Amino acid sequence: MPIDAARALAAEPRSATITWGHKDVQLYHLGLGAGANPDKPDPATDPDELRYTLESRLHVLPSFATVAGGGMGAMGGLSAPGIDVDLAAVLHGGQSVEPHRPIPVAGTATLTSKVAAIHDKGKAAVIVLRADAADDDGPLWTSEAQLYVRGEGGFGGERGPSARSAEPDRPADRSVDRPVRGDQALLYRLSGDWNPLHADPDFAKLAGFDRPILHGLCSYGMTLKAVVDTVLGGEVARVRACRTRFAGVAYPGETLRIGMWEEPGRVLARVTAVERDDAPVLADTVVEHART
């Protein structure tokens, strides 16, 4: 059944109450490799890493917004009126998070989600799902997931803006390697993404992969953590927004190479898989930040 863009865009937003605590934050950070930073001689007890793992020192990476409350807030937009698609044809094309203030270590919030836009790419449609979280003190974050749906284009809609951004014509100002543990996808999925693609070898083969792949949002969170740790002095509160395009996949056991270009008020990043000749993983990644 084709997408009814007008109906989907006119649908009323959906709201749900979400809660989280320090254990949810710690589990998420551990799923990103916190406590195993190869740049630290003893990462499990390093003060910089304890900010991600020890409840008495905890701060929250803004990318936690993608898993808070189980992580399915924006994805619920796929069940919105006018959206009837084959989930096997859906790819996560991009993600952005804009924190409006630091995310608390524990909290309760109202998450309001809706279909914000539907773009016609010809052979495919791109559905933009927006989720806004707010608590008693006001707005907390806005996140957007761009979902690429094969075979659903050609309905006469606008193509929408390009997600591509020009990469600086110079070597990266910084480059760090981050290993993906063999069990990392199994740990990360405990934060709410239960897609068997990331755990079941038989399911992964049906989807066209030799073995289970790492969650794209895990690569996204690992990249944001690397930028915070190496460019922003570990200050998560300086992050103003982080967006990326999922350009490829990563596998557990591989190494992510994160190249960073520093510009006033933002860091551009490119992420590749070292063991596969720097095959692309994330592209057009931008972390906007407050200056010191």
Rank of each mutant, 00 (worst) to 15 (best):
V149L: 04
R150G: 05
A117Y: 03
A131L: 08
D132L: 06
R164C: 04
G153M: 03
S96L: 06
E152M: 05
R174N: 07
W141F: 15
G107W: 05
G151F: 09
P171K: 11
P171T: 12
Y148H: 07
E144W: 00
L91D: 01
L129F: 11
P139L: 09
D120C: 14
A163L: 14
A106P: 02
E167I: 13
L91Q: 00
D120Q: 07
D169P: 09
G157P: 02
G154A: 10
A133I: 08
S162M: 10
G156H: 13
D169F: 07
H100P: 06
E144F: 00
A106G: 09
P171D: 15
G156S: 10
T110D: 02
P99S: 07
T108V: 15
D135W: 11
S113V: 13
L91E: 01
L129Q: 12
G94V: 07
G94F: 00
G160H: 01
I118H: 01
A172C: 05
D137H: 13
H100S: 14
S113F: 06
I103S: 00
V97W: 00
V128K: 01
T108Q: 05
S113K: 04
R170H: 10
G154W: 13
D169S: 15
G157Y: 04
G122W: 13
I127C: 05
D135P: 05
V149C: 07
T112L: 01
S113H: 14
R150T: 04
R164W: 06
D169W: 07
G153W: 02
V126W: 01
D137F: 09
D136W: 07
V115N: 13
L140H: 03
V176F: 01
P168A: 00
A163W: 08
S113R: 05
V149I: 09
R159I: 14
G107R: 07
R174G: 05
P179D: 10
P139C: 07
D132K: 04
E98M: 11
D137I: 11
D177S: 06
A117K: 03
P104A: 12
R130H: 10
L129A: 10
S96H: 02
H119G: 05
R164F: 08
A106T: 12
A131Y: 05
P171G: 11
A109R: 04
E98C: 09
D136Y: 11
G156K: 09
I103Y: 00
V176P: 00
D135S: 04
G156E: 12
K114T: 08
D177I: 08
A109W: 15
P179M: 11
E158I: 10
E158G: 07
V105I: 15
G107H: 12
G94W: 01
A109Y: 09
I127Q: 04
Q146K: 11
H92D: 14
H119Y: 15
S162R: 10
D120I: 14
P139Q: 10
D173T: 07
I103N: 00
V115L: 12
P168R: 00
